[in-house]
Write a protein that binds this DNA or RNA. Structure first.
Lengths: 348, 348
DNA sequence: CCCCTCGGGGACAACGTTGTCCAGGCTCTA
DNA sequence: TAGAGCCTGGACAACGTTGTCCCCGAGGGG
């Protein structure tokens, strides 16, 4: 027994090209030629090889292929939570672009945990993805520097990179929020509440900045009790809404900083109305929600598919060798007026 | 120049263990020992190796590792459309189980195209995933037989496998639909419409069967004009709804066969009501939708996360060597009464 | 003081594929 | 008919890692 290694079940003992070659009575390289559609094989030989492949149920081992060729034809996408429709659509758009380039996509969720983001991104690098699209959870991406230097094309989406220079594709959070709040002001509101995600998150900070800019543009003061940045946890959001609507000078309108906040706000406001309670409160949300049209919720709509598509296209441009300086692309937002944002201030 | 091959940029010339070994002044295997936390390395040597790793930005090449070890620590998930919240949640649940097992998940969308399902599944097999979870788009999975025989653990989710024996985790489509339709009957409806997905899809057929069973249980006849299986395309669904609500004997209630149909139905019915039109129509949908509570839509709720989690757990049981006969697990559904399903029949 | 043991470290082969190079047989032409 | 290609097919090395085996040096006991 000269046999040495053989560690485990070994892919359940799959046939290799060598086995196919033996069965077809040809050389190893000839099988490789057939499998890869390379020229230089007689039809008769090819037939024999294909027969053997069929009979043995052979399938080429891509790990070995990758090792030899140096390219994996794979890109990675690190996102926040696949169960969030926003990221689902974004991911899907990336997948389609990848597919068009004959490339496989691996996506994973960071669950908004910077540590997990890093772990995931580096795992993907160890698998030697050709490129990486990252939707940041953290705000320090220096850990990616060695990878980028080693040739992993990297594009950030939805939020910019932290502490490194890199391509990024973003939605216009600042402009969108400013427009949404201005819309409320145009409909007569003066006391407007802002409920957003943690300001450590770039988009959340930008939206808050847009809110303040719109108020400032109109010469309106901002009472800090109207501003509630923090987690998107439904309980926290519900409490914030309740807080802003109580007291001597309640807000007459709300701006919700993202789709999860909007959903909770809609729910809370609906309960309030069901109880035959106080007059309705105007609402504009950042990012569209499903059935928003039916519910009559006015939103600043982002285009997650466009963000994903654009990021993927930029990534493939880099993979094709584009070497310009890193650039930021901003995807515009659209105000969809559906009723909730056009309510006049209640008379108290 | 004895150098021969060197095909392409080669991962951008990443350092290998050999480079690390050279820099640290140790043997190749010693680096491997450090990287894998194997015993038999002096602290001093380990320190030198780690320093070299850091300095060079070395990261182990998992392709080579996989080739050598024979296990990829990767599973694949073939689903229909990642942008659909149902699959997003399912995928996320699978991801969490995989993560707990130190395994990476690769998911891809078949776009409901059987050809794409097969292409994707076989691509994943070529990458030597250890296991595969498939949400079928097609109804013939014999193409997977060689893979399964070769040792790829395979579990089907949401829909059973076609023409092969395999584990499957399903929602109770038949029972759920039957319960939903019975609910409408209990609220006085006699003419109930069914709008579902293409009956080639197993779950769609089961739900239609559940509809018929409930009608039959109550001794009610089914007019074939009330039954509209087909695509979930909004236009088709809208037309079907319109058709059922017109004519001399319109239906007084609708059962929607899945979340996409429900969404369109809600939208169409809302428009009808906005126009101050005819009396409301009762609606029960299969599968929950976002904000269904706010909208007051009665649904038969599935638990996509439970389906995904259960399928993943079964997969890992197989990977751990479980060898019982293939088995089907059925996850129950829950009726959530929220108003739309409790409306009485309109008096015309 | 010598031998034996033990433990750290290194040489080597092998995983399955693909790129290079060459051998042999064929055809075509001078 | 012989020489010059051309076409088919195969031998071999290399990709980066890990498993096996062995060597060498230090330390302890006889």
């Amino acid at each position: 027994m000269a046999e040495t290694t053989r560690p485990e079940p070994r892919y359940g003992n799959r046939p290799t090209m060598k086995d196919v070659a033996a069965r077809a009575g040809v050389g190893l390289k000839t099988v490789s030629r057939v499998v890869n559609g390379e020229p230089g094989v007689t039809p008769e030989t090819e037939r024999r090889v294909r027969e053997a492949i069929e009979a043995l149920g052979f399938r080429r081992n891509d790990s070995a292929r990758v090792l030899r060729k140096g390219r994996t034809a794979t890109i990675g996408l690190v996102l926040e939570d696949l169960a969030d429709p926003f990221y689902g659509q974004l991911s899907r758009a990336v997948e389609e672009v990848a597919r068009a380039h004959g490339t496989l996509l691996i996506n994973g969720s960071s669950a908004e945990d910077p540590g997990r983001e890093q772990e995931l991104a580096l795992t993907l690098c160890a698998r030697r993805v050709d490129g990486l699209i990252v939707i940041p959870a953290g705000d320090d991406h220096r850990y990616l520097e060695p990878e980028i230097r080693a040739g992993v094309a990297t594009v950030f989406a939805d939020r910019p990179a932290g502490l490194i220079e890199a391509d990024a594709v973003l939605s216009d959070s600042f402009g969108g929020a400013r427009e949404g709040v201005a819309h409320l002001i145009a409909h007569g509101h003066r006391r407007i509440g802002f409920i957003g995600d943690r300001p450590r998150i770039h988009t959340a900070a930008e939206r808050l900045r847009g809110y303040r800019a719109a108020m400032d543009d109109a010469g309106l003061p901002v009472d800090e009790r109207w501003v509630a940045p923090g987690s998107t946890d439904p309980e926290r959001v519900a409490a914030a809404v309740a807080g802003m609507l109580s007291g001597p000078e309640p807000v007459t309108a709300l701006f919700a900083g993202n789709n999860r906040v909007t959903v909770t706000a809609v729910r809370v406001l609906a309960e309030r109305t069901d109880r035959g309670g106080p007059p309705p409160v105007a609402l504009v949300g950042f990012d569209d929600i499903e059935l928003g049209d039916v519910l009559g919720v006015t939103v600043i709509a982002q285009d997650p598919a466009a963000v994903g598509r654009t990021a993927a296209q930029q990534l493939f441009r880099r993979l094709d060798g584009a070497a310009e300086a890193p650039r930021q692309v901003v995807i515009g937002t659209r105000l969809l007026a559906r009723g909730s944002g056009e309510l006049p201030p209640s008379s108290r």
